[in-house]
Write a protein that binds this DNA or RNA. Structure first.
Lengths: 175, 175, 175, 175
DNA sequence: TATGAATGAGGTTTCATTCAT
DNA sequence: AATGAATGAAACCTCATTCAT
């Protein structure tokens, strides 16, 4: 991948995450990337293609992130890792941009990537089963719902204290 | 308020909730409302002014909704009512539009109306205190975070079974 | 004439003089006049009609102004009065608005009301003839041209010292 | 500069001069220039930017015009050249458009470009000094005021005979 | 007489996209 | 691969004007 193509991808990720897909114009992206507007279309065909490319790169990244959790065999550790993942979002501005885009796009395009989450839900279900929870499926689903709630707050509430919230909920899932 | 003004407000609410604020053009709103485009600007000055008007109406509606919970004295009932409220979202398409807009706008404009939620958080804190929970503040906050997670799933995941999720989590908060 | 009609006329005069005819919207006039926009059209049929009304009032005012000069029999006094008239423009903000509008409209609509000036030119020609000038017609015409130049500077040049310019030119016409 | 950019500039100059800045729509300019409306904004950002570009080109043109007068050392010739300049306006339709725009814009935007005229006023003052006039500063200023008066008449009065007026006034300044 | 709701045409500007180079 | 000129459609908004009350 050429430098300029990367620049476009990075600029678009940042802008889509900050302002949303529709509200970000290709000209703004080109300017931020230090590139002519035409080049965006040469590389990605159209604005949708650019988004697709970003989302595709995102999927790869998510797969890697999830892999670390899915291949964990210690049940308690699995649950802990899920909570850690949320804390990880807040750890780097890069990760923040990345996840914020994922959520913003979800809302703007109204699609919840259930399939992407499935392996994680399965891993969690399995962990809760091992820990002899009554309803491991629902337990797993609930945990992921909470993750979404936490992420939402972190992204949208200026002074949200994500650490104490995560710690508190972590305890709740140790029964 | 004249009929046509109402029509505009209704059309805009529906379209903003379905397509988002930026992606909805004033001409689309006018067409749906059966009204000339200019009338939107006569009544609301701006597209922003139209949004503000809708959001303002929304605040009033939220105040009423919350009042029913806040003035409940039975602690267990308070918590139950919060869960019921989430179920209420799914009960009518009108309520769905209303709440979906609230969430979509939050994401598009990146603002979490913390202040609006404060009275509810206080009422919940008080309820958990009465029920002798260890950390009533965090318990209340967590419950609201979960509400956000549930709403998010309901709006974005096609086949999400909100009822069973709510029922399961409801139990979790009975310790 | 009703109060409100007068208000419209005054507001329009002021705004047309300040911002020009095209650049002044009927809604701005209505707001400044403290009147509904519709009333402008009730009284004056349309925006052009409003301008016409103002211009018509202006003609009356000009006739009166000119009368004082035209009926003067002392030749030297006639010339002096023309110079005094220019100084008079600067004397009151009301007169400034009035004349500024006359000039602005001339430029915007590209019409020089020669006929309006004819009696004045005739009076001046006659005065110069009495004073035995070689070419009284051209002398009169030149004086009026100078008046236009002076007015233009007064209206458009921030720090223009109209008094000293008038005094200097006044001497020039005493040969 | 591309052909189309030039076309826009020319069309705008002509239309602004004929109809005024506010009254000329960008769509009219585009049509006359044989160009898409969007191109105006790509090249000049704004309608204001387009005007600025025209005015900027105008300044350059004025500088060149004035240079010929300012570097003249023969005092009588300097004064003659100023009168010639006015006659020059009427000589070509291109020059007419150019100067008409300068005047129209002055009136529409209410700004007299004193600084632009300063070098000319200085040169004239110097000329009158050399010719031993009593008050060379005022003499120079008056001459320029008269130029404005002449230009105004030429542009606004249908049948104005600029030649005889210029010739007459030219004599007046030979004392 | 006076208002205020309403409109349709047209205004400036932005946008995604194409194309010649 | 990369640019920059160019476009047409559509965006938001303003305007003069009409009409029912």
């Amino acid at each position: 991948m050429t430098d300029k193509k990367e620049n476009i991808l990075n600029a678009a990720l940042e802008l889509f995450a900050k302002e949303g897909f529709t509200a970000t114009s290709t000209s703004k992206i080109a300017k931020k990337a230090g590139v002519s507007e035409g080049l965006i279309f040469r590389h990605f065909k159209n604005k949708d293609g650019l988004l697709e490319a970003i989302l595709h790169e995102g999927e790869e990244r998510i797969k890697i992130l999830f892999a670390n959790i899915i291949f964990e065999t210690n049940a308690k550790k699995v649950i802990d890792l899920v909570f850690d993942m949320v804390l990880g979002i807040a750890a780097s501005s890069d990760a923040t941009d990345f996840w914020k885009l994922q959520y913003k796009i979800k809302w703007e395009l109204e699609m919840y990537a259930e399939s992407k989450m499935e392996p994680l839900e399965l891993a969690l279900t399995n962990a809760f089963k091992k820990l002899a929870f009554n309803n491991p499926e629902m337990e797993a689903r609930s945990l992921l719902i909470i993750m979404d709630g936490l992420a939402m707050r972190y992204f949208l509430q200026k002074d949200f204290d994500i650490n104490s919230a995560v710690n508190f909920l972590r305890e709740k899932f140790k029964q």
